[in-house]
Design a binder for these strands. Structure first.
Lengths: 125, 125
DNA sequence: CTAACTGTTATACAATGCATATAACACCAA
DNA sequence: TTGGTGTTATATGCATTGTATAACAGTTAG
């Protein structure tokens, strides 16, 4: 895996969450492919200078969210089990706080839609 | 203010954040109008059975986000100071984690856009 | 078989954030 | 003066986060 994980230790976002997002981002970008194996918890922890348990927590969440399969012998392997209903429910709860603020401050539907499409353009191939 | 604040004490979302979101939601829905005054920190705390400081923290955030003006004599008054740049930056950082998951699981642009538009329909008048 | 590697679990610790509680202060209006 | 604002200070209990050390069970290469 050549993909570079970027962590911001000054951020108030938890490290294990940043780690999850970075790996999912790599999958979306196509830089981490289905079937590919991720570094071991100890290896990745050393690579990015964090604790083993923080990586293990991130891997456990990626497993629960259906992005990887964990295996004692070969480590963590990217295998996507799409759960559209769950993702759409998650998207709704993530979008809602932003949309109500957008409405109050006069951000139009067109601007919101444009923002979504630009994010898709940025990550989707 | 007839608007009903709903809090979920079982949620892992902080109470002061839920309170912010509920009030902004009320503004978006038009149930709380510009110029209207919110209950005092002590009154609202008693109404929803939480601590005064939790309400005070929420009011402080609403002030920082530009949704209310605070006044020692008359309390908290809804007065929106739109900061589009800030809201758009916030929307981007809120949307990003959801969008990368959407791309990985095959949620299309159309579905994401539809979700946004349905949220607008739900809150915007 | 041994050694080295996987994920997994248990325990402990410090730091931080959340929510509560009690109390006081400065300001203003009736 | 009395009672209502927001504001601040201090303290406590609790959960989360991240780190640290250690061990366990299963796999694999030598």
């Amino acid at each position: 895996m050549n993909y570079v994980i970027r962590l911001n230790f000054e951020s108030d976002e938890a490290i294990y969450q940043q780690l999850c997002n970075q790996i999912i981002r790599g999958i979306a970008l196509g830089e981490i492919r289905d079937g590919e194996s991720l570094p071991s918890v100890r290896q990745l922890a050393e690579d990015v200078s964090i604790n083993m348990h923080t990586v293990n927590k991130a891997y456990g969440i990626l497993k629960d969210e259906g992005f990887v399969k964990l295996d004692r012998r070969s480590g963590a392997i990217v295998r996507i089990s799409p759960d559209k209903k769950r993702i759409l429910a998650m998207m709704r709860s993530e979008f809602e706080p932003a949309v109500i603020r957008a409405i109050c401050t006069g951000v139009t539907r067109e601007e919101a839609v444009d923002l979504i499409l630009r994010l898709y353009d940025e990550y989707d191939v």
